[in-house]
Amino acid sequence: MVAYIRKRLLLAIPTLLAVTFITFSVGYLAPGSPIDAKLKERNDPETRARLMREYGLDRPPLVQYGDFLWKAARGDLGTSITFDRKVSEIVLQQFPATAQLAGMAIALASLLGLSAGIVSALQHNRFLDRFLMGAVLLAVSLPTFVLAPLLMLVFVLWLGWLPPSGWDGPLNYVLPVLVLGARPTALIARLMRSSMLEVLRQDYIRTAVAKGLSPARVVFRHALKNAFLPVLTALGNSLGYLLTGSFVVETIFRVPGIGFESVDSIMRRDYPVIQGMSLLVAVIFILVNLTVDILYGIVDPRVRFEEAR
């Protein structure tokens, strides 16, 4: 297994290179630069050129990319051009809130999604199944940016149950977690349902039931474990959405996280921050997926590590 992990980590290097290179080239090709905002609606080509030089943005693109890689390899992600702050500092300050938010959303999604999925599968095509799946889909057919203000209006302004915005205490967490968790919940519920349905129809489960084991026992002993595998993969994959897709939620509920930071840095063309954020997300994504695959192997020893990518 150590060899497997080593191999996977080695394979992560080209992935990271690809991510940073794509980010860099797309960022470089898009017109406008962080310098332009600094000039404040002024046409001052001289100052612009000087600042480009000061920030090293006048160097050939490949040199800039090389410089970024060289520094990143030694743990230096550079400095935000807009905010004149170390990128690593921004990450350290703002990542915890996002991680917390994403963690709670995943926990919520797993809890609600798994239970809804299992119940639905056991009640296949009966009322409860239809109802749960309908409810789950309804929650995701509204865009986040509508759901969030709507909930805010109801729970904050009309009912007064929750504080309006901020990230100071548990009551602050309720709405952002609910909104961010809605889509993964729906996903997991549906995935779990179809996965359970399939497992329930496998011969060994049928045999177990036929042998007289209680259905509940079968579900929790055998079916659940096997049905859980694809859900695990999906959880790993939706992490990317939770980390950067949280920008709408972070903006509306004033969560000081990186979701907002990354979108904002793109709008400002703050290259070092864009690079740093995508690198961070990529690293987390790779680590989480590696963990998922290892867990996969533990849950289901039939999966040989070499085969998984």
């Binding site: 898009a30 017109p31 406008g32 630069s33 962080p34 332009d36 905002a37 000039l39 609606e41 002024r42 046409n43 001052d44 080509p45 612009r48 709008m267 400002r268 063309r269």
Partner: peptide, 11 residues
Amino acid sequence: IEWTQFLKMRA
């Protein structure tokens, strides 16, 4: 157009 890009193109 995004602000930074707009500023550059205006200039």
